[in-house]
Design a protein around this nucleic acid. Structure first.
Length: 717
DNA sequence: GAGCGAAACGAGGAT
DNA sequence: CGTTTCGCTC
């Protein structure tokens, strides 16, 4: 690792008070925080327990912890390093009594919220306008991230009326289920701090140096949390890059960066502009893209590294061809798989890639998408655990009440529901009372009594056994294992594997927490785990992940695929320039993950909703200067021929221009537009059309036989 | 109430 | 195309 440069040293050794480090991609942002933690401890003599560092992923936190400890020559560092949400959870656990909630609580994840909201909407009186569960949740989450609540006067519109009612119902349901959602992990601590200044002061005294990584991705709640914690001492050290702000849809507020100096008048703003990650070629291309954004402070990244290989572009016939090319190209170039990543905009793109990689027997790992903890089987078992730990958790109860089938079907559940509503009681309580209910048929009553018994037994076992042992018990006593085994002949093995993997990871927890494995704590921690947290950097396999997941990571070799209009930029972002700019930043983030080589790709056709549809190359491709992009896949053997029909080759030339020679990469000259390169062709013979990108950066499509074109040379490169 | 096939619906990104 | 919901039969 190189020595720190002057700008980095200035940042690390900046004195007390608010500091914003504006740092571009690959300039050593995280390292600056690590070095500063180390510097505060070893040079300034600060007790590490006074240090707080907040990140966005557990993976980033773990890396920070490990590197800071290593840097200080310690086994582990005593500073509090973790995600905002984990810190919120930590505060909530300790300050819960201030919220008038006794004992523990569970954390609802996205799927829990969704199933809760679905039920609430179903139960909405018919007079209310229908809203979708997702829409309602986004509305609620948006307000909470702003630390706001709905204003009664806004309930005028019919749709808002429903939303307002859902807000109330939703929070009542959370409260009754003894649960909090992700936003609550930030909102509730802020609430406690504002309502109980003495408890805030305790945290301020404890955490005298507050650090925030990826500051551009903080939402308002996170900003307020960081600001509150650093009030008094003022030691807020924020590191961020406005060009990498890609989470505005999750409530991230770029103004936290842009207005840092206004918020903290004595703040110092430092810049890091030397990139240590990428070659000149990669940096130039990435800069060319992001410089088209208007809403940025502007930085000029530069590097001392080599020019490196040119950035390549592969123009694929379709998505399968794109996947085949990447598979073949990575093999041909003999790339070290653990240093190679394929990045894409949407999780759905992983499927075709996986198929190609499996066929070629290239080992790979997909991060994100259908995550382990959101697999149906795991969620079912988790629901049992949660119900045992927290009997008020209706969402979990509903999930497993009849899984495996035990004779408590829809009719019975409807009956129970109306009972619960009438008496305003939790569903579990209703189940317990059912013995005295004569209106329910005896068969259902018997089934319910058996279920209540089962849960009580498990709850008893939970007092003496850890989560691992409990999961094993659940699988046996509820018949869940048998249920999976017998459910489906096709993929029951894979599902069984998932069940067993979950059981063994719980057993691992038992071993790590011998004696004191608290079920509720276990479940709370689990709710914050994400897939990228478990990234194994040295695993000998290709990494597949979304551009979003790749934030904060780097790879020797990167393939960025699906550079098409409608995908990157995504179709749902095309109506406003702000959204396009965020897509552009996302593209920039993805490109700057690469250290040595970057390969871009797009497909002329892509399968969506089960049908193949034509697609246009991304506007971001046109923003990369002509000379900075090489066409890939024309070396012999690199490109498989699947889907390629040789459109131009099959037809006889009719005009003075040799239509057969017009292919991807052909250099041509247009009478009015000048020199350019063929990006792709469509049609054949007289009807051959070609999209040409000119040196001016513009692209246009022509009917080759009609346009005033001449061929300058054969294939490009 | 369970199980099955048909029909309808739906994928943006994620702590 | 994959998943969820619907509607029918047993």
């Amino acid at each position: 690792m190189h020595a720190l440069n002057e700008a980095q040293i200035r940042a690390v050794e900046e004195g007390d008070g608010p500091v914003l480090v504006l740092a571009g991609a690959g300039t050593g942002k995280t390292r600056v925080i690590i070095e500063r933690l180390a510097w505060l401890v070893s040079e300034k003599g600060v007790d590490p327990r006074y240090l707080l560092a907040l990140t966005f992923t557990n993976r980033a936190a773990n890396e920070m912890k490990a590197r800071a400890a290593e840097r200080l020559g310690l086994g582990r560092i005593a500073a509090w390093v973790g995600t905002f949400h984990a810190f919120g959870l930590y505060v909530l656990r300790r300050e819960i009594e201030h919220l008038g909630r006794g004992g523990g609580f569970t954390v609802f994840d996205d799927a829990d919220q969704l199933s809760l909201m679905k039920r609430l909407i179903k139960e909405l009186p018919p007079a209310f306008e229908r809203v979708s569960p997702r829409e309602a949740l986004n509305w609620i989450s948006g307000l909470k991230q702003q630390l706001e609540a709905p204003k009664p006067e806004d309930a005028a519109a019919r749709e808002d009326e429903a939303l307002h009612r859902l807000w109330t119902q939703y929070h009542e349901a959370l409260h009754n289920a003894n649960a909090v959602d992700f936003d609550d992990l930030l909102v509730l601590p802020v609430k406690v701090f504002k309502a109980h200044p003495p408890s805030l002061e305790r945290y301020q005294r404890r955490y005298r140096y507050v650090h925030v990584d990826e500051y551009q991705d903080t939402n308002h709640a996170q900003f307020v949390l960081a600001k509150l914690l650093s009030e008094g001492h003022g030691n807020l050290f924020a590191v961020g890059d406005e060009d990498q702000s890609i989470y505005s849809w999750r409530g991230a507020d770029i103004n936290n960066v842009l207005q840092f100096q206004e918020t903290f008048p004595d703040a110092r703003v430092l810049r890091l502009e030397q990139n240590y990650r990428s070659t000149k070629a990669i940096l130039k291309a990435a800069n060319a893209v992001v410089s088209n954004n208007v809403f940025r402070l502007g930085k000029t990244l530069w590097t001392d590294l080599d020019a490196g290989d040119p950035v390549r572009l592969y123009e694929a016939e379709n998505d399968a061809d794109e996947a085949d090319f990447i598979t073949a190209d990575a093999a041909l170039r003999n790339l070290p798989l653990h240093e190679t990543a394929v990045l894409y905009r949407t999780n759905g793109q992983a499927r075709v890639l996986e198929e190609a990689l499996r066929k070629a027997r290239t080992p790979y790992r997909v991060y994100g998408g259908i995550q382990f903890y959101s697999r149906k089987e795991v969620k079912d078992l988790l629901a049992y655990l949660r119900l045992v730990a927290s009997p008020a958790d209706d969402v979990s109860l509903r999930r497993i009440l009849n899984v495996p089938p035990r004779g408590i079907g829809a009719t019975t559940l409807e009956h129970l529901n109306s009972y619960a509503r009438e008496r305003n009681a939790g569903l579990m309580q209703v189940l317990r009372d059912v013995e005295t209910d004569q209106t329910l048929n005896p068969r259902a009553r018997k089934a319910i009594a058996a279920f209540v018994h089962l849960i009580d037994d498990l709850a008893l076992a939970a007092k003496t056994q850890g989560p691992g042992a409990l999961v094993k018990r659940i699988m046996d006593e509820t018949g869940y294992r048998k249920y999976v085994e017998e459910s489906d002949e096709k993929d029951f093995r894979a599902r069984l594997e998932i069940v067993d993997e979950f059981a063994s990871s719980c057993a691992q927890y038992d071993r790590e927490h011998e004696g004191g494995a608290d079920l509720l704590t276990f479940l709370q921690d689990l709710a914050l785990v994400s897939d990228v947290d478990n990234l194994e950097p040295d695993a000998p396999s290709l990494t597949l992940m979304t551009c979003h997941s790749a934030k904060g990571l780097e790879f020797g070799h990167v393939y960025l695929v699906g550079l098409e209009e409608g995908l990157l930029p995504h179709a749902s972002s095309q109506d406003s320039e702000e959204e396009i700019e965020e897509e552009r930043r996302l593209c920039y983030v993805a490109m700057t993950r690469a250290r040595q080589t970057l390969t871009l790709a797009y497909a002329r056709r892509r399968v969506m909703y089960g049908e193949s549809r034509p697609s246009e190359p991304s506007r971001f491709l046109g923003e990369i200067p002509e000379g900075s992009l090489d066409l890939a896949g024309q070396e012999a053997g690199a490109a498989p021929s699947r889907g390629r029909k040789g459109a131009a080759a099959s037809a006889a030339p009719t005009e003075d221009i040799d239509v057969a020679r017009i292919k991807m990469g052909t250099r041509v000259r247009h009478a009015t537009f000048g020199d350019g390169t063929v990006m792709y062709t469509a049609g054949a013979g007289k009807k051959l059309r070609a999209r040409i990108r000119f040196q001016t950066g513009r692209t246009r499509e022509f009917m080759v036989s009609k346009a005033p074109l001449e061929i300058v040379e054969g294939k490009g490169r």
